[in-house]
Simulated scan of single mutants.
Amino acid sequence: MKDLAIPHWVRDWGYTLMGILFCGFALKSFLIPNSFFDGGVTGISLLIHELYHFNIGWIIVLANIPFIIMGAFQVNRRFAYKTLAAVILLGLCLQFLPYPDRITTDKLLVSIFGGVFMGIGVGLAIRGGCALDGIEVLALYTGKRISFTISEIILGINIIIFLIAAFDLGLPTALYSIITYYAASKTISFVIEGLEEYTGVTIISGENQLIKERLVKELGRGITVYKGERGFLKESFDVSQPVDIVFTVITRLEVRRLRNLVHDIDPKAFVFTSTIKEAAGGVLKKRARH
């Protein structure tokens, strides 16, 4: 039977629309009724709304437009058009959808769950190929012109936002909003990377033949072998021997099992891991998604 694969554009817009709904829920049911903030352009929009009482839907759309234009040059026009459509839809959701009003007034619950739902929304939108907050584009643009990293630029912008909030609306509100931002950031990472964040593992061992065999036959992993040399010790620098350097990609849930397997074969094997943000193709084992 022919596999009925979902077209990429349908899946991407599905992610984007779900992200918009989650962001609208976080804003209308948690953050706005309790005068809380987030980071980035959304945080700036919430701050303007709280100080001047402008319509939040219009503010979010207008505040993102300069960054969307910037995104057309920094990323591509397709990304910019899709982001513009997503931001406009978010503004319409905030204006017309009947979200539950003020689910809770508990500040800790608002800061945590407001951030979590906002993070789910932004993360889903990113998986759909667009952005609901233009701060990333600004950081990308600025990072090419100054010596700071993108993360440092985003952190600096958000510090300014929270300082303004502290002076105008009080320190407690700013501190709770920092919790919101932290919860949103961690949730975004989880939504994008998921439980199956991939880990690259490099193994250097004299017992590489047996290790390769067990990785493939027992763990069902694909492997790549680099030809290298080992030795070069301080007391015998001129002595070395050829060795196969084994590289494989696993999920982080399998790291301990792989380490145990290698240790059973060669307790002196040199094993190191590195986080892989994106992995596709090859022999990658994935859990079934329901």
Rank of each mutant, 00 (worst) to 15 (best):
Lys2Asn: 13
Leu4Trp: 14
Ala5Phe: 10
His8Tyr: 14
Arg11Trp: 14
Thr16Ala: 14
Thr16Phe: 05
Met18Leu: 15
Leu21His: 04
Phe25Ile: 02
Phe30Arg: 00
Phe30Thr: 04
Pro33Lys: 04
Phe36Ala: 06
Thr42His: 13
Ser45Gln: 06
Ser45Gly: 10
Ile48Gln: 09
Asn55Glu: 15
Ile56Trp: 07
Val61Glu: 06
Ala63Val: 15
Ala63Tyr: 10
Ile68His: 00
Ala72Arg: 11
Asn76Cys: 05
Arg77Ala: 10
Arg78Glu: 10
Phe79Lys: 04
Val87Ser: 04
Val87Gln: 01
Ile88Cys: 07
Cys93Ile: 03
Tyr99Glu: 12
Thr105Ala: 14
Asp106Ile: 02
Leu108Thr: 14
Leu109His: 10
Val110Tyr: 01
Val110Thr: 05
Ser111Phe: 03
Met118Ile: 02
Val122Arg: 00
Leu124Thr: 02
Ala125Cys: 13
Ile126Tyr: 08
Ile126Ala: 07
Ile126Ser: 05
Gly128Ser: 14
Gly128Asn: 12
Cys130Pro: 06
Val137Asn: 02
Leu138Ile: 12
Leu138Lys: 05
Leu140Asp: 05
Leu140Ile: 15
Thr142Asp: 04
Phe148His: 11
Ser151Leu: 09
Ser151Val: 13
Ser151Arg: 13
Glu152His: 14
Gly156Gln: 09
Ile157Ser: 11
Asn158Val: 08
Ile159Pro: 01
Ile160Ala: 12
Ile160Lys: 07
Ile161Lys: 04
Asp168His: 14
Leu171His: 08
Leu171Trp: 13
Pro172Ser: 09
Thr173Pro: 01
Tyr181Thr: 08
Ala183Ile: 01
Thr187Trp: 03
Val191Thr: 07
Val191Trp: 04
Ile192Ser: 11
Leu195Ala: 13
Val201Pro: 00
Ile211Lys: 01
Arg214Thr: 09
Leu215Pro: 02
Gly220Lys: 10
Lys227Ile: 06
Glu229His: 15
Phe232Cys: 11
Leu233Trp: 15
Glu235Arg: 13
Ser236Tyr: 12
Asp238Pro: 02
Ser240Thr: 15
Val243Gln: 11
Asp244Phe: 08
Val249Asp: 01
Thr251Trp: 09
Arg252Glu: 02
Arg252Gly: 03
Glu254Val: 00
Arg256Gln: 14
Arg259Asn: 15
Leu261Gly: 08
Leu261Asn: 05
Ile265Cys: 01
Ile265Trp: 03
Asp266Ile: 13
Pro267Leu: 09
Val271Leu: 13
Phe272Thr: 12
Ile276Ala: 14
Glu278Pro: 02
Glu278Gln: 11
Ala279Cys: 09
Lys286Gly: 09
His290Gly: 10
